[in-house]
Design a protein around this nucleic acid. Sequence first.
DNA 1: TCTCAAACTGAAAATGATTGTCAAAACCGT
DNA 2: ACGGTTTTGACAATCATTTTCAGTTTGAGA
Lengths: 139, 139
Amino acid sequence: MTSGTNSSAPSRKPTRQQAAVAELLERSDDFTSAQTVHARLREAGAGVGLATVYRTLQSMVDAGTVDVLRTDDGEAVYRACSTHHHHHLVCRSCGRTVEVEGPAVEKWADKVASEHGYTGVTHTLEIFGSCADCTAADA
Amino acid sequence: MTSGTNSSAPSRKPTRQQAAVAELLERSDDFTSAQTVHARLREAGAGVGLATVYRTLQSMVDAGTVDVLRTDDGEAVYRACSTHHHHHLVCRSCGRTVEVEGPAVEKWADKVASEHGYTGVTHTLEIFGSCADCTAADA
DNA sequence: TCTCAAACTGAAAATGATTGTCAAAACCGT
DNA sequence: ACGGTTTTGACAATCATTTTCAGTTTGAGA
Ligand SMILES: [Zn+2]
Ligand SMILES: [Zn+2]
Ligand SMILES: [Zn+2]
Ligand SMILES: [Zn+2]
């Protein structure tokens, strides 16, 4: 079984590097890019190789412990989220993020998709705005 | 006081290159990447420089005549859409796209955002699935 | 029609995030 | 400690997108 990567491994003990990435995300309230994670870890002393940061983030996404989305300029950003299905309300200025749920939206998406004969339906939904603090801080 | 976003001159006559890009998108039902647009135009004889393809697509997005979204691997894809606010039901296999509307979703997004004190709210919402044809064509 | 500056174009080089390589290091059961 | 497997990380390779910049086109005025 030459599974080049740890695809479906039964949760091995995390390495120092993997733990460092996970903890940094846990501590952060907003979405963070791989490059930023790498830089922060380096500043903090316990450096982790860039490739390892990418690998770790990707496996966390696969494991469902981290959410990923794309900024307007295409950069992938990651966040440790609850494991159940939800969406995000993200501040465009400071990145402060709130998890939100909308059962009605889920139903609507499935309904409109099946009405058009689409199967295996998934969806993406993000809300962007200026959080209260950032709105107040504006000129 | 017209819409503030368009700071350029009042719609100059499109160049041959701009027209070529626009027409190709009009003719296409699905979302297309800049690279693909460039390749298609080259095949069709009337080649257009890659940089110009990018510039033209960007200006069409700014003008609101083209929608853009990101594929899973971060590539930007473009589609000539109706100008009013809508969302997309996209086939993961063939790309066939249907424009859909959901007034209830719009209200919900604005409501949940303002409840959390967010202002200047926008949102993104896309639905993915396998269209009827692709579902049938599957083994 | 001629002139000139602004707008446009595109080949080539630069940018920058992400991925691939692969030898060395860490791990693990024996 | 020993062999096998997994992980790591410096570095090179990809690849979409942007920037450069010199040559081209356009259009309003003279
Ligand atoms: Zn904020
Ligand atoms: Zn949902
Ligand atoms: Zn659209
Ligand atoms: Zn909407």
